[in-house]
């Protein structure tokens, strides 16, 4: 792990987790305030933190699939929320990280608002995971669409609170 990884790890809450299937995916990681000034930096920062937590074995590949997904179209959905996501063989189990940027990150959002709340979802590429992956995506979009959830996530002090908000 490089110095950047150690610095990230020191202010990250969480470890490796994630349900194999069924039910809402529990976030394994919470980054309360990103340093990133762009969406690419934000993805790099979150993936580095996930690697530091031992959750991502192939960070370069994970970052690449997330960046390629952004080329397809921004994963910012408006109202300060982005849901970057991707599937790959290098991801052994679904993984969800939640990150916050208090200053906001430009993300080419449809409403031009900077992104403050980021749900990063990675999943395996095999067919049985496709259904749960899409369900997780839909669930995260629904959580982020509610103003009450966004307000609570913006002020959430810890991973346990984030998990409680996502659990609904």
């Amino acid at each position: 792990m490089g110095c950047y990884g150690r610095r990230v790890a020191s202010r990250v809450q969480g470890t490796v987790s994630g349900k194999p299937s069924g039910g809402p995916l529990v976030p394994a990681l919470f980054l309360p305030d990103l340093d990133a000034l762009s969406h690419k930096e934000a993805l790099r920062e979150i993936v580095a933190a996930a690697r530091a937590a031992g959750a991502v074995e192939a960070p370069e590949e994970a970052l690449r699939i997330l960046l390629d997904r952004e080329i397809l179209g921004t994963t910012a959905v408006g109202k300060g929320v982005a849901i970057p996501h991707g599937r790959s063989m290098v991801v052994p189990r679904p993984y969800l990280a939640f990150a916050r940027s208090l200053r906001g990150v430009p993300w080419q959002a449809p409403d031009d608002e900077d992104v403050h709340l980021i749900f990063l979802l990675l999943a395996p590429d095999t067919p049985p995971w496709r259904g749960p992956y899409l369900e997780h995506l839909a669930r995260l979009a629904a959580v982020g669409a509610l103003i009450g959830n966004r307000k609570r996530l913006l002020s959430a002090p810890d991973l346990a609170t984030v998990r409680a908000i996502l659990a609904g």
Binding site: I71, L72, G73, V77, I83, P110, L134, L137, A138, A141
Partner: peptide, 14 residues
């Protein structure tokens, strides 16, 4: 699903 979540596909050709 992407469209309902607010995500548009614009970079397919790239």
């Amino acid at each position: 699903l992407w469209r309902e979540a607010g995500m548009q596909v614009s970079g397919l050709e790239q």
